[in-house]
């Protein structure tokens, strides 16, 4: 069985006490192998964020079945880390303490957090350094630029060494240069740590550059309409984005999205 397995899932957002409501996704089938990097693209409002919530156990399917690491998802999936378009750092905590926040919550770290605080802080600084944020740990998040905050938010998603990384348009609010820098950061983290990744994005170049497989979703209610393998060889240098093979795949996906929006 695949690491993340979503079978024929439907999700309906019901307002309290009524059966009507928005059908966000329907007949959704998707599977992600262990260690695989998957990108999900699709028109706005098609249920991509809903898909993330289903896979992390924040929402439960109205119909169908979701399993992660072989277990039915019946509650929050603590082996997942998440980062969003909005980095949402807590302004009263130092960046380092923001990164450490998951460890104060998730088992088994929360038990040993107080006694091992020094070791954890070093771990956080190391992780921050690995995304190019040496020394930023002792600054407040609001003293960092948007791109730096997004890097810190990535660190927060990774600090508890999750097996599954969920990224919901993490670079949507950044400029093109910063974005490409962060692509490389993610690429290298994925290569070195080998976590399974699901990336939701609007940027087809981002999807093709990072992912092993790109899923295209239809308009709401969302389902997968295209499953495109990306055969580009790893490790991928950023120059690959100027090659013909790369732009052909992007063009092809663009066509599918245009169809999906009809």
């Amino acid at each position: 069985m695949a690491f993340v397995d979503i079978q024929n899932v439907a999700l309906r957002y019901k307002p309290q006490g009524s059966d009507e409501g928005t059908l966000a996704v329907e007949h959704l089938d998707l599977s992600v192998e262990r260690g695989e990097f998957v990108a999900v693209v699709g028109p706005s409002g098609c249920g991509k964020s809903s898909l993330m919530k289903l896979a992390t156990g924040l929402n439960f399917p109205t119909d169908g079945r979701v399993t992660v690491a072989g277990n039915d998802v019946s509650g929050p999936v603590a082996i997942a880390g998440m980062a969003f378009q909005n980095p949402v750092m807590l302004p009263w905590r130092l960046t380092r303490d923001n990164v450490l926040l998951p460890l104060e919550v998730v088992e088994p770290h929360r038990r040993s957090f107080r006694s091992n605080k020094k070791a954890y802080q070093e771990k956080a600084e190391k992780l921050l350094a690995s995304v190019g944020l040496e020394g930023a740990g002792s600054k407040f998040p609001w003293q960092l630029s948007g791109g730096m905050q997004q890097r810190a938010s990535l660190c927060r998603a990774l600090i508890h060494e999750p097996e599954l990384l969920m990224l919901d348009e993490p670079f949507g609010a950044l400029d093109a240069f910063t974005r490409e820098e962060l692509w490389c950061v993610i690429r290298d983290l994925h290569a070195s740590k080998g976590f399974t990744t699901i990336l939701v994005t609007h940027d087809l170049r981002e999807a093709v550059f990072l992912a092993d497989r790109v899923y295209v979703m239809s308009a709401r209610p969302g389902k997968i309409i295209v499953d495109r393998h990306v055969p580009l060889e790893r490790p991928r240098p950023i120059e690959v984005t100027y090659e013909k093979e790369f732009s052909d795949i992007v063009q092809e996906l663009r066509g599918h999205i245009a169809d999906a929006r009809q």
Partner: peptide
């Protein structure tokens, strides 16, 4: 988002 980050960790 903050609530999601924490809730997903079992908070």
């Amino acid at each position: 988002e903050m609530e999601d980050v924490l809730r997903a960790l079992g908070a």
